[in-house]
Design a protein around this nucleic acid. Sequence first.
DNA 1: TTGTACGCGTTATCAA
DNA 2: TTGATAACGCGTACAA
Lengths: 351, 351
Amino acid sequence: MGRKQAVTYQDIAEYTGFSKATISRYFNDRDSLTLEKQDTISEALKKLDYRQNKVARVLANGKTEMVGILLPDLYHHFYYQILNKILGTYREFGFKFLVFNGDHNEEVERRNLQELMAYKVEGMIVLSNTLSSEELAGTGIPIVAIEREDRSIHSITTDNYLGGQMAAELLRKRGCTKLFHINSEVPPGYILPARDRIPGFVDYCEKNAISHQEYYFRYRPDQESLQQQIGAILEKIEACRGGEKAGIFAGNDTYANTILNILLRRGKKIPSEYQIVGFDDSPIALDAVFPISTIGQQAQQMAESAVSLLSEEMRKMRQRRPDPSKEPIHKIIQPVLIERETTLREKSDRE
Amino acid sequence: MGRKQAVTYQDIAEYTGFSKATISRYFNDRDSLTLEKQDTISEALKKLDYRQNKVARVLANGKTEMVGILLPDLYHHFYYQILNKILGTYREFGFKFLVFNGDHNEEVERRNLQELMAYKVEGMIVLSNTLSSEELAGTGIPIVAIEREDRSIHSITTDNYLGGQMAAELLRKRGCTKLFHINSEVPPGYILPARDRIPGFVDYCEKNAISHQEYYFRYRPDQESLQQQIGAILEKIEACRGGEKAGIFAGNDTYANTILNILLRRGKKIPSEYQIVGFDDSPIALDAVFPISTIGQQAQQMAESAVSLLSEEMRKMRQRRPDPSKEPIHKIIQPVLIERETTLREKSDRE
DNA sequence: TTGTACGCGTTATCAA
DNA sequence: TTGATAACGCGTACAA
C-alpha cells in the first residue's frame, strides 16, 4: 500500500465535513448527491490527491472485476494473438486480466488455478489443456474454454471440421487430383478440437471421391528433425502422386512454410505441381517466399465471444441468488479462407 | 466472492477451538505453533474445504504481490517473447501479473496505469513507450522499463549499439565490401533504444573505413507497401554495389526476410552477391527459405533481470522505512550473434 | 506459544 | 438525501 499514509474516504469526509458514506456515494451513485456536495467532494479529491483503493472495495463488495487467463504457452501464434484480442476487450468490458503461462505442465496449471481463486477472480478464460474441464468447473466460477476440451465448461471453438473441408475444397477447385494432409502426431487420449480438421478434410475427399492420404510425424520442437521428417514424407508423396497435381493441407502455417521451402529447394513447381494450404493465418504464411494460402481462425471474434459470454455468466453469479447456466454453452466460430499464392491457378508458376 | 458463504478463519477457529490469530499464524508463521495444533488445523482446513482469500490479506498487510505489465502490442515477436519469459518467472518470484495492452495509445496507457495503481500493484514492468518515464516515476512505486525511454526509472536494455557493430563486423568478416542498413523511419523526438543499432553499425564502418549507406522507408503496417518500398531501396543498392559483395543489415528479422525474398526473386545469389543480417532472432529468421543470420536479444535474461531488479526494489519499499534506490538503475544486456545461411561464406550459394 | 483487540479502506444496512 | 455503524477476511501489536 502507499507508504505515505494513503488518503482515504475518512480524510475526505473530515475535510468536507460529510460522512464516509457520502464519499462512497460520490463514487458509486453520484446522482444521489446534491450538486453542491458533488462539487465540494470533487474539489477535495483533487486537493488531497485521492487515489482509489479497489482492493478495499473488493473486500467490501466482492466484485474484483478480475479475470484469469490460463495459457499453455506464448510461442504459438494462435495463443498470443488470442491473448492480444482478449486484452483488447478491456475498453469495452473493463476486466483486469491476471495472466498465467502453464507451460503445458499440469501441476503448474493447478497451482495457477489455485492462485487465481485466492485472488478472487470472477471468471476465467482457459486455453491450456492439461486440466480437465471437470476440475475447472469445480471452482464454481464461470469459465470459458477456447479451443480446448469443454465437456463441463462453456467454450468458444473454431469450426475445425469445416476448416478441413474448406481446405480440401479449395485444393480440389484449383485442380488438385491427389490430396494429402501432413500433421504432427498427438498423444492418444488428448482432446484437441483442432484435430477435427482432419475428419473434415477426409470426409470431403471421400464424399467427392478424391484420392487422399494422411501423414503424421512425431512432434519435436527443433527445426532440424521437423525438416527431416517432413522431407521424408514429401518423398513418399512425390512417389505417390505420379505426376498428378498434388494438394497438400498442412496442420498449420509453420508446417506449410516448411513444406513450401522443401518443395522449392527440390525444384518442384508451385502451384502447378504442388499446391499448399496452411492453417491459422500466422505471420509466417504471409512472410513466406510465396505467401501461403491458409484457413484463418477469427481471433477477434473468438476473443470477443469469450469475454462477452464470460461477462454474462459473471453477471448471473453476482446476483443475490446466483443462477449460472445449467448447461455449458458452446459457441462455434466459422474459419475464413485466405487465398494467396500457393493455390492460385491463374498466375504463372513460382519455382 | 464465493456466494455460498466462504469459510473463513473464524470458522476454522470455532471448529478447532483456537483463536483466529492462531489460524493466521498457521499460514504465516507455522513454526510458532505446536505440531499438534498444526495437524488439528490442517485437518480442519480440509474438512471445511477452506479457500484462501488473498484480497483480505492484501487489505490487511498491503502486500498484493501483484505486478503490472504495460505492453505496446502483442504483435511483434519481441513483446510476446518477453511477456512469455516474464510470466515464466512466477515459479521463482511468485508475482501475479496484471497485463495491459496499451495499443500505442497514450490515453489508453494512462488509464491502464491508473487502474494498476487502484489495484495496488507493488511494481510495474513497462515495455510501451507512450508515457514518459517521469510520469511513470510519479506513481511512487518501483518501475522497470524494458527497451524504452528510461530517464527516471530503472531499466533493462539490450546493448543495441554493440548489436549494430556485431552485424557490421560479421558482414565484413564474411567478405562484404559494401555495407547497407535498411530500416523504417521513426517519428522525430521518439526515443527508442533500438535505434542505437544504427550508430553502432555506422561507427564500425567508419572506424574500419568500410563503404556504408543507410536507407529508411516510411513505416506502414501492410505488406504490400513494405514490399514496394524495400524493393525500390534494393534497386538503388544493386546499382550502388557495382558488382561487389554487398552486406545488408536489416532493422529486424521481418525486414530481413522481405529483403531475402525479394533478392531471391530477382535472381540474386545469397550469400555470394548479397549477405543479410537481421535483428531479434524471431521465428521468421529461422523459418525463412534460407535461415537468416540475426542478432538475438536475450529475452530470458532480460526478463529475469527485470523481475529480479523489480523484486529488489519492491522489497526496499516494503520496509518500515522505505528506501528506494535514489538513482535509476540501468542494466545493459549483451546481444548474441546467431549465424545462419545468409552469411555463411563456405557453403555453396543458394539461389 | 497463544489470545485479544484493533486496523486495513471500502461498501451495505438501517435509520433519520 | 444523508449519516452512523456494522460488515468484508485477514494481519499484527500487545498482552498473557
